[in-house]
Computed example of a mutant assay.
Amino acid sequence: MRIAVEDLTVTLAGRTVVAGVHLVAEEGEIAGLVGPNGSGKSSLLRTVYRHLRPSAGRVLLAGRELAGLTPAQSARHIAALPQERGGDFELTVREVVAMGRTPYKRAFAADDAEDRRVVAEALARVGMAEASARRFAQLSGGERQRVLLARALAQQPDVLVLDEPTNHLDVRHQVELLALLREQRRTTLIALHDLNAAASVCDRLHVLHRGTLVASGKPRDVLTPDLLAEVFGVRAAVVEHPLTGDPLIAFDHRTPGPGTAAAVPGPEVEQEPQQVS
């Protein structure tokens, strides 16, 4: 399904964190959001999975305004892997992933054969099938990340919304996750800090800076030395990856960059949003 953000503005505690953003993820496209910390990536994604209500603008799913759908209808179409992971569930891995089947079930209904099949398949896709009986609270950060991705896949959504999904993953599992996303060819909105990962996995990139959209296009067209200097405040050369042919950003770690980017140290943290049902 095609998802479109139109003239989106988000205001938190009187401060505009997203200002008049337009962007589109076409059906089957992986659209990446990149930008310095505090640029509004997470706030924009939260409006798409309806954890945050925009102050202006709208989100359209296949041409239909998302705000007009019920929460259950939204959940059948859109699954999210947010940065905020919640508490330590006192559930097994399988039970956590089975929560992804909730939009298709009546209250308190038991899992049926189809639910069990979908959950098993989702766990296998993320390499966690053998851990299905373990307690979620006992897992490492990377293992939890993969289980929560399996829960999103178990929703069988048309659209995936992923906020820094490679956090906590080692190199092997980062590569496997990005390969899985490409294999899925499901409409995906993904925020990534790793620009080389974004250049590898995304069909189109949208660059946010201080809450505004400053560039959109194919990674090769967007990730230029000038943009990296202006938005991220770094010196870099963009070359061709010797194995994949994707753009590869080589950062200059010896010479300070221009220092023009208004990046905030540490994780992208925004004030607690207003939740919506």
Rank of each mutant, 00 (worst) to 15 (best):
K41I: 05
H22A: 14
S39N: 03
R53G: 14
A31D: 01
V24T: 14
L61A: 03
L66W: 01
R53P: 09
L66G: 05
S43E: 05
V17S: 12
G32V: 01
V59Q: 00
L45R: 03
T16L: 09
T16C: 08
E27S: 10
R58L: 15
P71M: 05
T70H: 06
V59G: 03
L33V: 07
G40R: 02
G32R: 00
L60D: 04
R50G: 05
G14W: 10
G32L: 01
E29T: 09
G63D: 11
A19K: 13
R53D: 11
V21W: 02
H22F: 15
G38I: 00
V17Q: 10
R15C: 07
K41W: 07
V59R: 02
K41L: 05
L60M: 15
P36F: 04
A25R: 02
K41T: 08
G35I: 00
V17C: 04
L61C: 03
L61I: 08
H51W: 11
S39Y: 01
L52P: 00
G68C: 14
A72G: 14
L44P: 01
P71F: 08
V24Y: 03
G63R: 04
A56E: 13
A62H: 09
T16M: 08
S43G: 03
G20Q: 07
N37R: 02
A56L: 12
L12F: 10
P54T: 05
R64M: 02
S55Q: 07
L61P: 01
A13Y: 06
H51F: 07
P71A: 07
R15P: 07
A67I: 08
T70A: 07
E65A: 11
S42F: 00
R64Q: 11
R64S: 08
A31F: 15
S55I: 03
G68K: 12
L44N: 02
L69W: 06
R50Q: 15
A31Y: 05
E29A: 10
L60P: 08
T11M: 09
G35K: 00
A67C: 15
L12I: 08
H22T: 15
E65Q: 14
E27R: 14
L12N: 11
V59P: 02
H22P: 10
L44D: 13
G20M: 06
L44W: 13
A13R: 14
S42E: 01
E65I: 03
G38H: 00
G20W: 12
A19M: 13
G40W: 06
E65S: 09
V17N: 15
G57T: 09
L44Y: 03
V59A: 03
A56H: 11
P71I: 07
E26W: 01
E29D: 11
G57H: 12
S42A: 02
G40V: 00
A72I: 07
S55C: 09
N37Q: 05
